[in-house]
Amino acid sequence: MTEKTSVFGSALKSTEKKVLDLKKVDEVAEGQGFVSREAHKRRNYIGPSQQLNVKLPQEIYDRFVAFCDKEEIQFRKGIERLLDETGR
């Protein structure tokens, strides 16, 4: 039986493990403009959640959106604030 030679040469035959200095790798990557793919904690993460879909008359929807815009809050925070104000 004949041994086939790899089109990649001896690069695939290397079994020695190389130890990388990860700090050096990060420095080089940062210098080249690469962005880390490591997971980042989301800013507005609230934990387990449920979705709420509500049909509203246009007038009430507009009032709610205006309220949230004026207070500069997200819809979920607007609902939370209105519930807190009613004491429920």
Results as ranks from 00 to 15, higher is better:
residue 63 R to P: 00
residue 55 K to C: 08
residue 48 P to V: 09
residue 45 Y to Q: 14
residue 36 S to I: 02
residue 2 T to N: 15
residue 18 K to F: 07
residue 51 Q to I: 13
residue 37 R to P: 03
residue 31 G to H: 11
residue 85 E to F: 13
residue 48 P to K: 13
residue 49 S to D: 09
residue 44 N to E: 02
residue 85 E to N: 15
residue 59 E to Y: 11
residue 53 N to W: 04
residue 83 L to W: 07
residue 19 V to Q: 11
residue 17 K to E: 07
residue 50 Q to V: 12
residue 25 V to H: 12
residue 81 R to I: 03
residue 15 T to C: 05
residue 42 R to C: 04
residue 48 P to I: 05
residue 64 F to L: 03
residue 43 R to G: 05
residue 73 I to N: 02
residue 60 I to F: 13
residue 34 F to I: 05
residue 56 L to E: 04
residue 16 E to D: 11
residue 64 F to E: 00
residue 46 I to W: 02
residue 17 K to A: 09
residue 85 E to G: 10
residue 41 K to T: 05
residue 34 F to M: 05
residue 74 Q to Y: 08
residue 71 E to G: 00
residue 49 S to C: 14
residue 25 V to C: 07
residue 35 V to Y: 02
residue 11 A to G: 12
residue 2 T to Q: 06
residue 4 K to L: 12
residue 85 E to C: 14
residue 67 F to P: 00
residue 26 D to R: 06
residue 5 T to G: 04
residue 54 V to W: 04
residue 18 K to R: 15
residue 88 R to A: 12
residue 8 F to Y: 15
residue 4 K to P: 06
residue 69 D to G: 10
residue 35 V to T: 08
residue 75 F to H: 07
residue 6 S to A: 03
residue 11 A to V: 11
residue 40 H to Y: 00
residue 21 D to S: 01
residue 81 R to C: 01
residue 43 R to Y: 01
residue 51 Q to D: 15
residue 64 F to K: 01
residue 58 Q to N: 13
residue 63 R to H: 04
residue 77 K to Q: 12
residue 3 E to V: 07
residue 8 F to R: 15
